[in-house]
């Protein structure tokens, strides 16, 4: 029993990532306002990006920039990868952040067009007006 508890508590950050992800998913499904839905979508995206970035963390490591990288001669032989965080997930998630903001921008532009046509951004009211036509 205490083994299971230690297993759960020692990985508390992963549980909080899952909680954040589920908050975003709940907002995308259950919220009726479109702006709220897209805030939920952004929370969902950042939670996933947070999970990926956290996989590059090493204990006791610093940011992935070489110390004394400019004098290549003697320093290049002494690079120890354990002293630097893994930069590969960082580079991949950099693209994901930019894609997330582009998605949000397009979604909000569509919301503005929807508001021009239906005078509301609440989903039930739009469905009601669609049913009347």
């Amino acid at each position: 029993m205490s083994d299971v508890l230690t297993f759960i508590i020692s990985r508390f950050n992963y549980w909080i990532y899952i909680v954040l992800m589920m908050i975003g998913l709940y907002a995308m499904i259950a919220k009726r306002n479109y702006v709220k839905k897209f805030i939920g979508m952004s929370i969902f995206q950042t939670a996933i990006i947070l999970f990926y970035v956290s996989t590059g963390v090493k204990s006791g490591a610093t940011i992935p920039i070489l110390e004394h990288g400019h004098d290549i001669g003697h320093a290049a032989a002494a690079i120890n990868p354990d002293h630097y965080a893994n930069p590969l997930p960082h580079v991949l998630m950099l693209t994901a952040i930019v894609v997330g903001v582009a998605t949000l921008g397009v979604a909000l532009a569509v919301v503005q067009k929807v508001h021009d046509q239906y005078e509301t951004i609440e989903e039930p009211e739009i469905l009601f007006k669609l049913g009347q036509e």
């Binding site: 590059g56 963390v57 992935p64 965080a85 952040i97």
Partner: peptide, 17 residues
């Protein structure tokens, strides 16, 4: 993210996010 050592991701998020 800055605390996790991902400084490039951190300042992209600060500017863009």
């Amino acid at each position: 993210w800055a605390e996790m050592g991902a400084v490039d991701v951190a300042f992209t998020e600060a500017a863009v996010g």
